[in-house]
Design a protein around this nucleic acid. Structure first.
Lengths: 269, 269
DNA sequence: ATGGCTCTGTGCGTTATCGCACATAGCGGC
DNA sequence: GCCGCTATGTGCGATAACGCACAGAGCCAT
């Protein structure tokens, strides 16, 4: 097992309070007090696979500053991204929806950290009080919206529009305008050829919307990116904001800060 | 309001016990006793819209022998089916997931009947006991799987394969091998041109898999249809069966039959 | 600095699907 | 029986994306 605990760097913990995840931050102090002591900060390196299609899930993950893609991989190896999860969400909804596994893969698309929680701890909390469950369900509804819109987008929109949508979804989950991501990987996510992404990215570059080089992309003009994107981005954004009007809590409150230090000080790599 | 109650035809009620819906049939007698008196049998004519994108949902619907499509309609009028629901499921998961509305339209794709239930009644039952909630969540997980697979299918598979998948999904939700459905409507569901469906259907006809004429399709060779379909059908079917290993109860048990007559004897058209 | 690897750019023939136009066919109503 | 409507069939040029091949360009390690 690669799950050997390591002593966490104090700086990592300090830079990644649990409340940086919108869902964890939106919980009442009471629930936070019960839950936070069971959270474990884990490193989320690029391309790490949290689970494969069919795996029995043990943990749910609450990203603080990483991005995880839910990816479906077909029998012939072709793939398509189903949805993307950052600090607004949770990975592993199948654990509380039932079935304990999914037909997709969860893979880190942008490195960072996440808090993980044993599925059983989550369920224990569900049984104590409805608050956490209801929040998880609202997030699941937002996830459903994103999946549905992905299906529509795959049917009707061209690569240029989808690339814009994809960049915006990533941007919303990052603190700056810089992505570490090759065109090859973007192509895997969108389920298109790498060359198609190269051409679309070239056009965006010509329009001075982005600049990029060897696995690094910088967004220069976000408003223009939104104009060039299909409606799918805005639809998902609006619905997510409606369902989850929570923002990250950048500087933790006194109380949250105290709870924060109750998280297990171990780092799982 | 077109929701004026009518006295139900006794034959319709008898032919459509609530237990014909797999979810309702899978409930314990105790929960059935509480829930069934609040169920209302409603007629589901072809093309009836149960709700539009953004509508606040009042009812959930449990189909007995009809099929309902969840359809996304874009700004320019183009559309794409997100998922399909028959007697294995429920329409209106957003009512209990949260948000009380969705970005899609629910439209009857194959006429028949369904039982509807006030959203509040559903929530009342959730608060009494977890059984119904857990069942609903398992179904929601199956729905998520179908949406995800639709996204993949839209990306990677051709019209012929998708038509086969679509026919199989419909077939599974019907009692016979006969669909009332024009190629134009199928095209709307798949989000492709009508001519594309005509050509694909022509090829299936040449292979003696289906025969059809003016809004009627009969499947002649289901095994061949499954062979011609992409993997998407089988994946969704397997996952749904895993999550919801429930079958319709064709002849209601003594107890269920008694409960059955407690349903409101009104028919909403 | 050089070789090797990865990432990006480009060309080209092929294919699936589209958009449009129009022809044909079945069915119901009068 | 005929009209009109709707459903289905077909042809054709346009287009977007594909598969493949290969060229250049940046970065790293030895």
């Amino acid at each position: 097992m690669p799950d050997s605990p390591k002593v966490i760097a104090a700086s990592s913990l300090a830079a990644n309070p649990p409340t940086q995840n919108h869902l964890l931050g939106a919980l009442s102090t009471e629930v936070q007090q019960r839950l936070f002591p069971h959270l474990e900060l884990v490193s989320m390196p690029l391309a790490k696979i949290l689970y494969e299609s069919g795996d029995t899930l043990r943990y749910v993950y609450f990203p603080t500053n990483c991005i995880v893609s839910l990816l479906y991989v077909m029998e012939n190896g072709a793939s398509a991204e189903i949805s993307v999860v950052g600090n607004e969400g949770i990975i592993g909804v199948a654990l509380f929806m039932g079935g304990e596994s999914t037909t997709s893969r969860a893979i880190v698309q942008s490195s960072g950290y996440a808090y993980r929680l044993l599925g059983q701890r989550l369920k224990d909390e569900f049984n104590l009080h409805g608050e956490l469950l209801y929040l998880m369900l609202r997030y699941s509804q937002a996830l459903i919206t994103q999946m549905a819109q992905t299906a529509v987008c795959n049917r009707h929109h061209n690569i240029d529009q989808q690339l814009c949508r994809w960049l915006l979804l990533s941007l919303d989950r990052l603190t700056d305008n810089h992505l570490v991501m090759t065109q090859e990987l973007i192509a895997n996510m969108l389920g298109v050829r790498r060359e198609g992404v190269t051409e679309a990215a070239g056009r965006l570059h010509k329009l001075k919307v982005i600049e990029y080089s060897r696995g690094h992309i910088t967004v220069l003009d976000r408003p223009k990116l939104e104009k060039l994107s299909c409606e799918c981005y805005a639809v998902v954004k609006a619905e997510t904001d409606r369902l989850l009007p929570y923002k990250a809590i950048p500087s933790a409150t006194q109380k949250s800060a105290a709870l924060h230090h109750q998280c297990k000080h171990t780092l799982y790599l």
